[in-house]
Write a protein that binds this DNA or RNA. Structure first.
Lengths: 235, 235
DNA sequence: ATTATCTATAGATCTATAGATAATGC
DNA sequence: ATTATCTATAGATCTATAGATAATGC
């Protein structure tokens, strides 16, 4: 069904190395399968076959499928989190107390868009998986919270400085729209390709990078000023 | 596991009625299960049990699970499509040749937000299912295209009139961001609730309705004018 | 000695079909 | 007579565990 097993003949020297190498292979294969079919669409047997290893080995390293799934997420989540944290830190320093919405969003988004757009197939798979999790209450959204909320709150904190009069709800709803667009992008479903007759392509992360921060920044500003006017009119 | 079976004792008079009634029950149960667990997370047995009917009956009405899944989508898709088509028609007439981006987006979004926000549990489930499909290449995105592209192209056509100088790609990318935010909203994952410490709620579709069209309209306008400036600078 | 990997297997579950039964339809 | 529903069942598949084997580790 899946790939022909192709493990290296020569095994790593130490047991620790071997363990680590095998686990990485399992992570890669599982990540790819989960990205394609979701948590329930994957069987441990398929993952094992893709690695070229007996299926029971997965039970040796992981309690069950959900445990493997969580470990797949836990492998890459810290990387993207630290990347974005660093970019946000740098931006905040550079902005010297006067951050802009667009600047903060560029810092937040571009780091990720590069990672998922230019990264290897592992990162692409991880992004596709994240896209599904983001819109799936049962087996996705909680795990997203657990890992990613820190960075989001870091972004919101900067946005508060950029838009001091904006009600906090509006910042959260704005972020909601941002993450909706970002996650759909990471899904790479090819939908926009068909819809636009080939004019736009799901794979064209540069196109997204060129537009998204400005698009969303304008949205934040319009929402906040618009809502302020609404409230004024109601008084 | 699931609900106790509770079919009405008194069956509908004609066979056609009985067939229709049973199929509706199957659709409702399947829709709920698919919304929770996705295509692969559902077993036909669970669906049958929830209806209170033998599992082999599902094979009498549907070829297999995917056939049932497609039928679940095909039941409600035309309803929301025609609703939005009608709203867009009405808006176009009312705008009398001078539509605005925000007006068009209001027409497009509000019809849906009311349907999914105020509709019964069936519509809520359908929305949650759509959210997953939207971000899932394998078993979702194609089906979305098949059903919904007509309405989207209808919206884009109006946006072209509202933004005559805007490059077509920008309109499609703008729509991409819109649908990302909309689909995440329909997913009702509760993520924004936790993130915002209860300040915003996934269930609060009125809050989304109050913000989304304005937010996205500003995004479209900023993208188009910004991109036009970029191109001018490059010449 | 310890640990990575495999073999064998039990038990559960799921899909799909054939054929029986019990209703409605003229 | 037709069709909605159920019973029974075959075959496939998946999960999870026990125990064997084959490497590395001191």
């Amino acid at each position: 069904m899946t790939e022909a097993p192709k493990r290296p003949k020569r095994r790593p020297k130490t047991k620790a190395d071997q363990r680590a190498a095998t686990m990485e292979q399992i992570f890669d294969a599982a990540e790819e399968q989960f990205a394609r079919h979701g948590l329930y669409g994957v069987t441990l047997k398929e993952v094992a076959q893709q690695v070229g290893v007996h299926q029971s080995l997965l039970h040796y390293y992981f309690k069950d499928k959900k445990d493997l799934f969580d470990a797949v997420i836990a492998r890459r989540a810290p990387v993207t989190i630290e990347r974005r944290m660093a970019t946000l830190d740098a931006y905040e320093r550079q902005a010297a107390g006067k951050p802009t919405v667009e600047g903060a969003l560029h810092a937040y988004l571009d780091a990720d868009l590069d990672l998922y757009g230019k990264g290897d197939s592992g990162w692409r798979n991880f992004g596709m998986l994240g896209a599904q999790m983001s819109n799936t209450a049962e087996w996705g959204a909680d795990l997203m919270d657990t890992h990613f909320d820190v960075v989001v709150l870091r972004l919101i904190k900067i946005l508060k400085v950029a838009l001091p009069n904006c009600p906090e709800e509006d910042l959260f709803w704005g972020y909601h729209f941002v993450t909706g667009g970002l996650m759909l992008s990471l899904g790479r479903t090819g939908r926009i390709d068909k819809l636009s007759g080939g004019l736009c392509r799901s794979e064209d992360f540069d196109a997204i990078k060129q537009r998204m921060a400005r698009f969303m920044a304008a949205g934040f500003i319009a929402t906040c000023t618009g809502r302020a006017q609404q409230r004024a009119a109601e008084d």
